[in-house]
Amino acid sequence: MKRAIVLLSGGLDSTTCLSVALAKGYEVYPISFDYGQRHKKELDCVRQIVKYYDIKNHKLIHIDNVGGSALTDSNINVPDYEGTSNIPVTYVPARNIIFLSYAVGYAEVVDADAIFIGVNAIDYSGYPDCRPEFIEAFERMIKVGTKRGVEGKPIKIETPLLKLSKAEIIKLAYENKAPLHLTTSCYRGGDKACGVCDSCVLRLKGFKEAGIEDPIEYSIDVEEKFRTL
């Protein structure tokens, strides 16, 4: 059976990505990261998702927190949704470079042909490491910087969500019966999603446009929020 590494954060996108890899018939090797993020609830979600799918090959990597982001530095507040095109303070320096580097190494160890990552270039928060240019550059690096690459068997980075809207991602997740009720998207990491940070608002807008009720709990009145989206 063909094998794939799946970057699994516990969020909506990465869980949908996992469901796509499974639907394509891959034996999956999910990999998650504890990088000092304030929203550690997502790691609890990861454990539940892995249990839901009865996956035995999950790996959790611990990385020192280098700070520099509202997601990793408690002195920087997570802002409410602003809808600007500027790179926000929730950007984590080089996060996907680091995550994909670990994933490439793990792929060589388990002889995986692909790495699935839930990056999205449409409904995203302006992060430079979610763009197609970044993925293309990283694939070129894999070809020249790994044993598989120089031997003509480069590892493919699969980005099934790259050009989908959030509503389309949600519909795909439901088609694949992905457990979105076990996911979280909130940057603030409370017991209930805040409903006002960038990630929460993009998620809520996606569910509204998809015509589907979001199965997770929020600390705000979601129906009231829908009227402002």
Rank of each mutant, 00 (worst) to 15 (best):
N65Q: 06
L43G: 00
I49F: 02
F138E: 05
I170Q: 02
E42Y: 00
P154M: 02
L12F: 11
E108G: 06
K143M: 01
E213C: 11
Y81H: 15
I216P: 06
S219F: 02
Y187F: 05
G36Q: 06
L180F: 06
F207V: 10
I212H: 04
I157A: 04
E213T: 15
E136G: 12
V201C: 00
R188K: 14
P88S: 12
T184C: 13
A114H: 05
D44S: 13
E209H: 10
S101Y: 00
A70Y: 02
S9Y: 01
H181T: 10
K171D: 10
K192A: 09
T183G: 11
D44T: 12
V28K: 05
E42R: 01
N75Y: 11
L22E: 02
L161E: 03
R148F: 12
R203F: 08
Y53F: 14
D221S: 03
K153G: 11
R227M: 13
K166Q: 04
D80P: 11
L202D: 09
P215T: 06
R188P: 01
V66F: 12
I31W: 01
V150W: 08
V89P: 11
I97A: 15
E209M: 12
T228H: 10
H39N: 11
Y102N: 09
D129M: 07
V78E: 01
R38P: 04
I87V: 15
D113H: 05
V46G: 05
E224C: 04
K171G: 09
A21D: 02
N65K: 03
I115N: 02
Y52E: 11
T72M: 02
P79D: 00
E133Y: 14
C45G: 09
R188G: 04
E168S: 10
